[in-house]
Design a protein around this nucleic acid. Structure first.
Length: 118
DNA sequence: ATTCTTACA
DNA sequence: TGTAAGAA
């Protein structure tokens, strides 16, 4: 029941460690050292779309910050936004396939009725 | 005060 | 890409 995910973003270092702390666009911009306009543009270009909350304000999760770092690095190296979009898409694809492989791995050799000492 | 959208240079 | 006006 502690749904503090739409009111305030984490402010200081001595804050309660929630599951997913959210940050305002200003904090992200300062943290990553990029203009807020660029973050808004990334949102418009479907590269990284943060959640919206009270007043239609963007709320970036730690996960988005992580993605943002990668995106900024790629764009900084000359990758176009559409290109970055593709990279992120592939990244998600890889993540999904890895999960599937993990499921299969756990499925093989570990049945409910583990009968090894037959 | 901070952020949001739209528009312009 | 960076900045401005006007609203929330």
């Amino acid at each position: 029941m502690s749904g503090a995910s739409d009111d305030r973003a984490r402010t200081g270092p001595a804050g309660p460690a929630r599951d997913e702390p959210f940050y305002t666009i200003g904090q992200v911009a300062t943290l990553l050292d990029v203009p807020q306009a660029q973050l808004r543009r990334l949102d418009e270009l479907e590269v990284v779309q943060p959640e919206r909350s009270t007043g239609n304000q963007r709320r970036y999760s730690q996960d988005e910050i992580d993605t943002l770092r990668e995106v900024i690095e790629l764009t900084d190296e000359g990758v176009t936004l559409p290109g970055v979009r593709k990279v992120l898409e592939l990244r998600r694809r890889v993540d999904e396939l890895e999960q599937q492989l993990a499921s299969k791995a756990g499925e093989a050799g570990e049945v409910s009725g583990d009968r090894k000492g037959d």
